[in-house]
Amino acid sequence: MSEEQPMTHYRVQRWSVPAYVANGGFALLVLALVFVPSVFGTFLTQQLTSLLILVILAAMWNALAGFGGLVSVGQQAYIGLGAYGTIYLTQHGVAPYPAMILAALAAGVIALPTSLLLLRLRGGQFAIGAWVVAEVFALLVALDQSLGGGTGISLAALNVYSPDRRQAYTYWLALGCAAVLLAVGYLMLRTRLGASLQAIRDDEEAAAAVGIRVMSAKRILYIFAAIGCGAAGSLTLANTLFIQTQAVFDVQWSAYMIFMVLVGGLGTLEGPIVGAVVFFLIQNKFADYGAWYLVGLGATAIVFALFLPRGLWGTMEMRFDIRLLPVGYYLRRRKRAS
């Protein structure tokens, strides 16, 4: 250590005025969204519930790939576990809404042993391995006749509520989950773990060489994303009331997540939210066009990959140098005192 104290000349900046404003803005937005069911009808409430689920999914995939370098095409494993876990718990006497939260946490518990196997793989092997795991979970669920086998099952326990009430409760839970998961993800990325994860994303071997516990860092992220996707799964079930193994464990979920994150901006916290809104709008406008809708999604993704590789938000961030949800550390020279 030098005799002179370096920090008398420098300070570390982690916040900015725009970031404070944006964080306050997000808090106000969440507060305003609480009143949606009382102001708008059941249809719009259901639509917004779908959007919130998409936001959660996009944020989880982005946390994995954009901040941890874990590119997965198997997160539907936990969407499915969240949905079927809810069914299972309600069949065993747990009230539906607590069951949804417990099922999401259970997805995280199951992710722990899964991670021991899966996180040994890297890159493309990890991506495909995660997909295989999702298929295995789907088969195991389909084998259980009490869960409807392959033909599907509905969340009968929610019938005790009137449709309006039910939709409002589901919406509030979705809003709560989205707010908590995004806030936890954001705060996690601001901690030392967040910096370690970014280092692992950029170069795993070099990260280990500076003393980072690579495995445990990846494991924490993987479990977090499993809980988030589990919540998205149970919320999807509550929002549609009926699920089938094939649909809820479908790899298409991964395609949607990748689409949202690429369009919004990989590795930015704001991007996935933007991407989820874009995807939601496209889905609502063009879903009736059948196969052409999927062609359109694919074409949009290609256009973004070629011409806007940083995504909508990533490009904005570059051009205007703004960070509304900053996770970085900036070294600033102190202004000379006297």
Partner: peptide
């Protein structure tokens, strides 16, 4: 060289020192 390309120079050394005043000081030094 294998820098952490998506991070700043300061963050590159900061992941090695750890945060907090001691970490910041060591990083700057």
């Amino acid at each position: 060289p294998r820098p952490f390309g998506g991070m700043t120079v300061f963050e590159n050394v900061l992941v090695a020192t750890g945060r907090g005043r001691a970490g910041y000081e060591r990083s700057v030094e």
